[in-house]
Design a protein around this nucleic acid. Structure first.
Lengths: 235, 235
DNA sequence: TCAATATAGATTGTTGAACAATATCTTTCT
DNA sequence: AGAAAGATATTGTTCAACAATCTATATTGA
């Protein structure tokens, strides 16, 4: 559990990274408004610099900017999740089709499967979730396209945002360790059709559980203005 | 040919739109450095606001930001074009698979085909190019995913950037009017397999011609520093 | 002459303060 | 209570300044 954090790049880049982590970890509530002065103070950067950061995060879909109203934490709803999984289906089916035996992504996937199994044994669900994401990210690399991978990363970041906003981020990924292992094996053996079928199975099941968890969340938050919550205090 | 330009949103958004157009129209050279003070003066906005704009355009892939060196016009090379077409293949194949008869995208495609034929007759290649893009963009809407469409838009914007940087932006799209028409007809008739095959044909041919044109460009520019050209003067 | 180095100049990175425009909250009036 | 009016806070944008970094020029040494 190294908290790493490599010091590099402009202050804005670093700040963007920090906020991104906070978002993913659910530090802010879904739809919460991010006040410029508050967050600037929190990160110890100027308001101008923070605005650049907001622009970055907004174009990554993690923040929603409303003119004259400010920046709000993205609050993916049911429709968003469905949209995300539609995107995943297209991209990952493409990945399965592009899969070849010699591709380095295969080795990566294998390593990730093994590690995920370890983490599951250790009960480290946090890590299992991350490894699951990495597994699928590695899979997309079969396509050998930086842009497609970037697009996938974007969508997955949004999905992580959803996870961060859920209460029981725990064993949400647990069932997929085996599925991933099976998927890997099928790809290794070049059984494309079966891999496709299993992928579909995975996506459907995963989508369902996320939607269900989302519904469970919907019940909690009591008051909220419109695109975002108003609750100001937080520390 | 209305030059439209709707006045809306923040100054930064408008400015981003303006620069984006300039980039696509080839106003700036590939790899050219965009000086903050210069461009800020050109657009009549402050340097701080411009920085936000740069961050937006950079995350859209139209600009490349190098720390402490500034922002440069993206200069997609051969590898980038190949990457772009790989992305297109995955997404657009997905679109063909998702195509259904009742989908509104079909009507859009039909309208665009007709209009493109008109423009071709009129010799308006500029419009033919735009309509060709729109046709394929409409096609992606079969997937019914805003995120996937956004991803596609990003890639297509980069492709337009390449076109803008080419000398003979003319009849580059001319051959595809008929291809698109045929593709539309196949989709209309629900002949998925054939549509897929034709799509592949289109993508291969288009990719080839773009790469060829890129090579032709490569011959011209004489000097250049590293990630971008250095030629400062421009008006 | 050529290359390494020092020096001066320009550009980016970042900040703080200021003000207009807009939104949000509070009070008042009917 | 609901609407209108005013007060307050927040965003949008600019400006001026300065540190950090890069770039080009001049200088020096072999």
């Amino acid at each position: 559990m190294p908290a790493d954090m490599e010091e590099e790049g402009s202050l804005a880049s670093k700040a963007a990274g920090r906020i991104r982590n906070m978002l993913i970890e659910g530090y802010f509530g879904p739809g919460e408004k991010l006040s410029e002065v508050q967050v600037a103070g929190l990160l110890g950067i100027s308001r101008n610099t923070l605005r650049e950061v907001f622009r970055i995060l907004a174009s990554q879909g993690l923040l929603t900017q409303v003119p004259n109203r400010g920046a709000f934490v993205a609050a993916p709803d049911e429709a968003a999740v469905i949209d995300i999984y539609r995107t995943r289906r297209v991209i990952q089916r493409g990945a399965v089709h592009a899969a070849t035996l010699g591709h380095p992504a295969l080795a990566r996937m294998r390593a990730l499967v093994v590690e995920a199994e370890d983490m599951r044994r250790a009960g480290n669900w946090q890590a299992v979730g991350t490894l699951n994401m990495d597994f699928h990210r590695a899979m997309v690399e079969f396509c050998d396209s930086a842009r497609l991978s970037a697009c996938f990363d974007l969508v997955m970041a949004e999905l992580r945002l959803v996870f961060g906003q859920l209460a029981d981020t725990g064993h949400l990924h647990e069932p997929y360790v085996e599925l991933n292992a099976a998927l890997y094996k099928l790809l290794l053996e070049g059984r494309t059709a079966e891999a496709l079928s299993l992928l579909d199975h995975y996506l459907i099941q995963s989508e369902r559980s996320v939607l269900a968890a989302l519904h469970r969340r919907r019940a909690e938050p009591p008051v909220r203005t419109e695109p975002g919550a108003s609750r100001t205090n937080r520390r």
